[in-house]
Design a protein around this nucleic acid. Sequence first.
DNA 1: GATCCTCGAGTTCG
DNA 2: CTCGAGGATC
Length: 677
Amino acid sequence: MVPIHISTRVAELHKILHAHNYHYYVEQAPIITDHEFDQLLRELQEYEAAYPSLVTSDSPSQRVGGEVSEKFPKVAHPGPILSLGNAFGAEEAHDWAARIARLDDRVESTSFTVEPKIDGLTVVLHYENGLFVQGATRGNGEIGEDITANLRTIRSMPLRLPVAPDADVVVPTRLVVRGEAFLPVAEFEAMNEKLAAAGEKTYVNPRNTASGALRNLDTKVTASRPLTLLCYQVVLIEGVTLTSQWETLEYLKALGFPVPAVSTLFDKIDDAVAFCVEWGEKRHALTYETDGMVIKVNPNDLYEDLGITGKDPRAAVAFKYPAEEVTTTLNDIGVNVGRTGVLTPYAILEPVAVGGVVVKQATLHNFDFIFEKDIRIGDRVLIKRAGEVIPYVIGPVEAARSGAEVVFEIPTLCPVCGELAEQPEGEVAVYCMNTSCPAQLKRVIEHFVSRGTLDIDGFGEKLAVQLVDEGLLSDVADVFTLTKEQLLTLDGFAEKKAVNLVAAIDVAKTRPLDRLLSALGIKGVGDVAATDLAKRFGSLDALQAASVEDLVAIEGIGPISAQFVADWFVKPSNQKLLDKLRALNVWPTQAVVEASPDDEALAFSGMTFVLTGTLPNWSRSDAKAFIEQHGGKVSGSVSKKTSYVVVGASPGSKAAKAEQLGIQLLDEAALQALIAL
DNA sequence: GATCCTCGAGTTCG
DNA sequence: CTCGAGGATC
């Protein structure tokens, strides 16, 4: 007997999966990601495996796909274009190998290929005597759509075989090849940058963009998209015999088909799985998006003999990486107040796993962002982790709208203090205009004591909030007059913690001028400007006495920033703050450097470096100190002017951008070696 | 005046 | 990391 709750859930899964199939195949507007679909299908398959009586002929697990849209003529594939079973993680991949080993003794000693699972559109290409005659989408796996004209616009697709006329290769009389059409990530980003600059709506991801382009009725649109292609399977061949997958890949390459470069042949399944795991980290270096790798039994005869289960061949499995893009519900939009008074909206999300962690919140940057993307409260939204860390809302899934979504309204009052919020002319940001807004004060103090500025150990966001709420602080100078007795009145403070904090505050009184300057939070003055100002003026007195002209003379300070500095010193509340600091003897000075030092002799003078990833022995600040010590500059972003990019473990997009711009990459050792020259 | 570059600010989770 | 905005440069 099947438990009632399971049969209910299975019926529900049937309904859900059929609906998603419809959205995906017919409307071409999926409302969940492929990964989420896989998860649901898997759940169903698990129930069906446990209770075989649940398997019905109309179960979504028994179907290869869905309907075929009416837009294009239909093409019957010469053989079924199968999908693959999934393995999430190394353990499941080993389970798969063990399963097929039990079915056939030859598996024990066979070889395997590993190929990337490209996130694009499957296409089926027909050649007769070397001539490209027809191309189709995958459709439902049996019948696809004729997109021959669109495919012809893809420049990497061979129109005549062999591509190199003098290639030493036998051309089959008939050949049907399976490949993946996609938009390279870099091309996609460049396209979106252009669209964004023109104020137009941007595309959600490369896959959807490629799909739209390839299935556009106007081939001129297809041609304008830099689509490309990689091929990896022979569906049908006449006139030539191939005996293994590896031989197939080599043969396709010889004919002139583009073949995935990372494809590798392994003698042992353990090595194949290890290779998949290894690429989980490295895959972002590829020009295309992947959500996994495909492990295939190499010899064709064994591949065939292992047969098919449902809709998947037993002899291959997709090794899937954790999803990086998921959809979830936007429950609400909250508003934060920053230390400058900027109101920043953030998404309150139905918790969802992305790239291995559960995300509940994501910033929405500013109010324009919400309206440009047309994000509404209650929407299904697509989430990714930018640079594999920070959650980022890509945009709404418009196809999933019910009509109950609510358009967000820009607040006219500060959500914390209730005072009027204003948007200065020509700016995107909306500010809370109340300078004594408690939210602002909390953030100002947090910044004052944080690691990049005065670096007071044991002083963080929570304490800043506590102290302001208790009324113990009314400006940043009050931090220095905090006593052990005051701290002991706070929740979570006992003798030892209070003593340590008072000592840490004492140490911070003698931080160098540049640190104090950036701690003050003068508009336009951060890390870099503070260092430059400190170097040129040497004391707060000298800086205060400086005219706007004096300030503009510094490279990197223009008229606007100079005015911000001058205005800051004029403000009465800041004058009061300065008086307090002076009285407390928090008044660092340093030697004035008139012009840039004569560092022509230094190895790195005139060079700009960018750091990314984690270096083996040095921290980021060690590396920065090393570069600066030798006369180089360290910048945060890669540009044409960058001399070198120093790459550590698990680098971000900066390494990719450097490669794109043809900038030389260095590791820690290579950076040190530059000095030896 | 346009374009590229750099800086500053806000930001998520464990 | 991403975004906005100021500064440098042609």
